[in-house]
Design a protein around this nucleic acid. Structure first.
Lengths: 137, 137
DNA sequence: CGTTACATTTACGTTCACGTCAATTGCTCT
DNA sequence: AGAGCAATTGACGTGAACGTAAATGTAACG
């Protein structure tokens, strides 16, 4: 039903996600994604795209690929046993609290940075005043 | 006035920030911190501690040490010229918008993860019901 | 059917952020 | 003075996450 040309080539993937072919092959080798094959060529499915999106998101937060791999099992547990899923569920819970504390830290960092920039803006204002005085003289 | 034993040894620093001596020496080599010397030994100042705090915070968000080094100039521009400061000011602005968008992504990631965990909880509930049926049989 | 244009595999290279080990050096305690 | 213990420097090692080069395959085009 929702056909949208479900399969994408490696180049289409690279353009869509701004990664290199090497990266996609590397992720496949690490079992983070599982493209099908048309002969020797890779064909990436909707599932691969969903996983890749999560992978790149995780990377932005400094999560290692290995940890990301384990987290992916939470979102997408094709053919993984119940106990496997239970493990990844717990892991997901832990990761959630970590992310929440990271969010708190990020908020603090943003507040601090805003403050510093405000101070800096004050400095510039004074510099500009000095400049005006000079050009007026 | 605010004496609080301003200088700390490398061991005190390691204990306080949960890093290894190697890390502190590495950061010094990379010019992220500038401990004084008592003979050959390092003595870390209040300034070093402030910088180290920011360094570790930055690392949590996946910022590279080199980028962190440049950002530090914004918070602490000892003996750096005006144009240097202007550069780091702009850099700080850019970083702020990046952090804000990172925050948005993080919020989304947290929402998604919560949702997945909720789904998982539903699954477990059903499993538990099955277990109950079995033990009842 | 030859050449152009990608894709694949294999394997070695690279950068970052430290770890680890060895060889001093410098107190400090007895 | 000698023994012990922490700190320092220098050098090499390591794991993660790819980059890069070489050889090979294959699909399409004129």
């Amino acid at each position: 039903m929702t056909d949208t040309n479900d399969l994408m080539t490696i180049r289409e993937m690279c353009d869509a996600f701004e990664v290199t072919p090497r990266t996609l092959r590397f992720y496949e080798a690490k079992e983070l994604i599982f493209p099908k094959r048309e002969g020797t060529r890779r064909l990436f499915t909707r599932r691969d795209r969903a996983r890749l999106k999560l992978i790149l998101r995780g990377k932005r937060f400094g999560i290692s690929l290995e940890n990301i791999r384990q987290l992916l099992d939470l979102y997408d547990h094709e053919g993984s046993g119940r106990s496997q899923y239970l493990r990844s569920y717990r892991l997901g819970q832990e990761r959630l609290t970590e992310m929440e504390s990271q969010r708190a830290e990020l908020d603090e960092a943003i507040r601090d940075l805003r403050e510093e920039l405000a101070k800096g803006a004050g400095l510039f204002a004074r510099y500009l005043d000095e400049m005006k005085d000079k050009s007026a003289a």
